[in-house]
Amino acid sequence: MKALIHIGMPKTGSSTIQAFLKINAEALRAQGLRHDPVNPRFGSQYELAATGLVRAGAAMSDAVALRVLGLRDPAAQQAYVDAFEARLQHGQQAWGERVFLGSSEHIHAWLTRPEQITALDTVLRRYFDSVQYLVYLRPQGEMVVSAYSERIRRGETLSFNDHFNQRLKALNYWKSLRLWAKAVGEARLTPRLLTPDALVGGDLLDDFCAIAGIDRTGLQTPRRMNTSLSAEAIALRRQINRFLPVRNRKGGRAKPYQLALRLLERRLPQPGTRLQLSDGQRQILLADHAEANEKLRARYFPERATLFPTES
Rank of each mutant, 00 (worst) to 15 (best):
S146K: 07
D162C: 01
Q45M: 15
N293C: 01
E232T: 15
R304E: 13
P40Y: 08
S149K: 01
R253E: 04
R113D: 11
S278I: 04
R151E: 00
G141Y: 01
Q239L: 07
D206N: 14
W180N: 10
N226W: 06
S130K: 09
T306N: 04
L21A: 01
R67L: 06
L204G: 08
F128S: 04
I284Y: 06
A49V: 06
L177Q: 03
R242I: 00
D203K: 10
D279E: 07
L88D: 00
L277Y: 13
A30I: 02
M225K: 09
A183E: 09
N293P: 11
D36N: 13
L48S: 14
W174Y: 12
A298Y: 07
L268M: 05
V246W: 00
I211D: 01
I284K: 05
A287E: 15
T16D: 08
R262E: 11
L286C: 03
A27I: 03
Q166L: 10
R299G: 02
S312D: 04
E311F: 09
R224L: 14
G8M: 05
R223L: 11
G272L: 07
Q93G: 13
E47M: 04
E311C: 11
Q220H: 12
K22I: 03
D82L: 03
P302M: 08
D82F: 02
A86E: 15
H289W: 01
N226K: 05
W95S: 06
A63C: 02
E97M: 04
S278Y: 03
T112E: 08
A86L: 01
K250S: 10
N39R: 13
L263T: 11
S312K: 11
I152W: 05
L244M: 07
L259F: 10
L275H: 14
L88G: 00
L177I: 04
L48T: 14
L69Y: 12
Y257M: 07
G70P: 06
N248R: 07
T118P: 01
E294T: 09
R237C: 04
Q89V: 00
S146G: 03
S146H: 12
E85Y: 05
G185S: 08
G280A: 15
Y46F: 14
L28K: 11
I5V: 15
D203Q: 11
G155N: 12
G185T: 12
L199M: 11
E105L: 07
A305V: 11
A170T: 14
L244N: 00
G251C: 04
V135D: 03
Q89T: 01
G252Q: 10
R299F: 09
M225L: 10
